[in-house]
Computed example of a mutant assay.
Amino acid sequence: INKYAFSGGQQTVEEHRAKGGNCDVDISFQFLRFFLDDDARLAEIREQYTRGEMLSGELKALAVAEVTVIVREMQERRKNVNDETVDQYSKVRPLAFKY
């Protein structure tokens, strides 16, 4: 995210502070849209970034923190998957349709 995520920020800090950033094209903000559960906090981040109060690096740091939580949760759940779990989910079973 820090190195490759496209930013909606300006070329310089001074320009960013004056003009603000564009959340609609900023990949870090898009990650937050999907992974941040707090809508009020997301709206606050959007306002701060759009007004130039928050820099791209700060926005990327927030995105990294949120994505890291999700990835760690997935890694922990994946540790619990074994052959029995795979068999349970992949076995053929009838589907109950009600007409």
Results as ranks from 00 to 15, higher is better:
residue 27 I to C: 07
residue 22 N to E: 13
residue 90 S to T: 15
residue 54 M to S: 09
residue 13 V to D: 00
residue 65 A to Y: 08
residue 73 E to G: 15
residue 8 G to F: 01
residue 75 Q to S: 12
residue 55 L to I: 10
residue 14 E to M: 09
residue 23 C to V: 13
residue 1 I to H: 06
residue 11 Q to A: 15
residue 80 N to S: 08
residue 90 S to N: 11
residue 45 I to Y: 13
residue 8 G to M: 02
residue 97 F to S: 05
residue 24 D to C: 05
residue 24 D to Y: 02
residue 53 E to T: 03
residue 80 N to H: 13
residue 80 N to W: 07
residue 34 F to Y: 09
residue 46 R to N: 13
residue 34 F to Q: 10
residue 71 V to H: 03
residue 93 R to N: 14
residue 90 S to W: 03
residue 65 A to D: 15
residue 19 K to I: 12
residue 78 R to Y: 15
residue 55 L to A: 10
residue 13 V to C: 00
residue 81 V to K: 07
residue 2 N to T: 09
residue 74 M to S: 05
residue 71 V to I: 15
residue 57 G to P: 11
residue 3 K to I: 06
residue 34 F to S: 06
residue 36 L to N: 09
residue 40 A to W: 02
residue 61 A to W: 07
residue 36 L to Y: 08
residue 28 S to Q: 04
residue 81 V to F: 12
residue 31 F to S: 08
residue 25 V to W: 01
residue 29 F to P: 02
residue 48 Q to T: 01
residue 71 V to Q: 07
residue 36 L to S: 07
residue 43 A to T: 14
residue 20 G to R: 06
residue 93 R to F: 05
residue 1 I to Y: 04
residue 28 S to G: 13
residue 83 D to Y: 02
residue 73 E to H: 14
residue 69 V to R: 15
residue 68 T to L: 06
residue 74 M to G: 09
residue 40 A to K: 09
residue 3 K to E: 08
residue 56 S to V: 09
residue 30 Q to P: 00
residue 51 R to K: 15
residue 38 D to H: 01
residue 54 M to D: 01
residue 66 E to D: 10
residue 51 R to M: 11
residue 70 I to T: 03
residue 11 Q to W: 00
residue 73 E to F: 12
residue 5 A to R: 02
residue 92 V to H: 10
residue 3 K to V: 08
residue 76 E to C: 03
residue 39 D to T: 07
residue 78 R to A: 14
residue 47 E to D: 11
residue 60 K to R: 15
residue 25 V to F: 06
residue 48 Q to F: 06
residue 2 N to C: 05
residue 1 I to T: 14
residue 54 M to I: 11
residue 58 E to H: 13
residue 43 A to V: 05
residue 94 P to Q: 14
residue 27 I to Q: 11
residue 11 Q to C: 01
residue 20 G to F: 01
residue 67 V to M: 14
residue 65 A to G: 07
residue 71 V to W: 00
residue 99 Y to L: 14
residue 28 S to I: 05
residue 62 L to A: 15
residue 98 K to G: 08
residue 63 A to N: 12
residue 21 G to V: 08
residue 55 L to Y: 11
residue 28 S to L: 05
residue 11 Q to T: 03
residue 50 T to E: 12
residue 79 K to I: 08
residue 49 Y to H: 02
